[in-house]
Amino acid sequence: MKINLRFFASVRELLGTAQEVLVLEEGAVRLHTVGEVRNLLIARGGKWEYALAQGRALRMAHNQVMCDADTVIGEGDEVAFFPPVTGG
């Protein structure tokens, strides 16, 4: 399964990239979640581990809708990571 990853603001700056296509293994009934994608990226280590760390304030979106780690993803979906935004 292929999904599109998008990175915004400070996450993009830390990773040095704005987007990536990620290929995930799939089984007959295997479902993937946004949280699993985050963990796969963290497992890359280095800047990935730092930018996406579990204790870091980070927002996630699935197909341009805010979501949580348990959101199930499918073929061709978009998953985005970005810092929380404050306004004034």
Rank of each mutant, 00 (worst) to 15 (best):
G27R: 04
F81G: 01
G35R: 01
L31W: 01
G74S: 13
N39V: 02
I42D: 01
T33N: 07
L52K: 00
E26D: 12
W48H: 01
D77K: 05
C67A: 11
A57K: 06
A28M: 09
Q54R: 00
G55E: 14
P83D: 04
V37R: 02
L31I: 06
R30Y: 09
A61W: 05
A43L: 10
V65N: 13
R59K: 13
L14T: 03
G46C: 07
A28E: 15
Q19E: 15
T86H: 10
V23K: 11
V85R: 02
N63G: 14
I73L: 13
V29S: 11
E26L: 10
E75Q: 10
G74M: 08
L52A: 01
L52T: 01
K2P: 03
A61S: 14
V29L: 11
R59N: 13
L31V: 08
G88H: 03
Q54M: 01
E13K: 04
L31S: 09
M60S: 06
R6I: 12
G45Y: 05
R38Y: 00
L41C: 00
V72E: 07
T71E: 13
G27Q: 10
V29E: 07
K47E: 01
G45S: 06
G35V: 04
E75K: 11
P83T: 09
F8Q: 08
M1G: 05
G88L: 12
M1W: 02
R30K: 07
E13T: 08
E26P: 02
E26I: 06
D68V: 11
D68E: 15
V34F: 09
E36W: 11
R6P: 01
I3P: 15
A57W: 03
E20Q: 12
T33V: 07
I42H: 00
V11T: 10
R59T: 14
V21G: 03
W48F: 03
V11E: 04
G55Q: 10
V65D: 08
E25A: 14
C67M: 10
G88N: 07
L5E: 09
A57T: 04
A51P: 01
W48C: 00
L52V: 05
V65G: 05
G87W: 08
R12K: 15
H62Y: 14
V29P: 04
V37L: 06
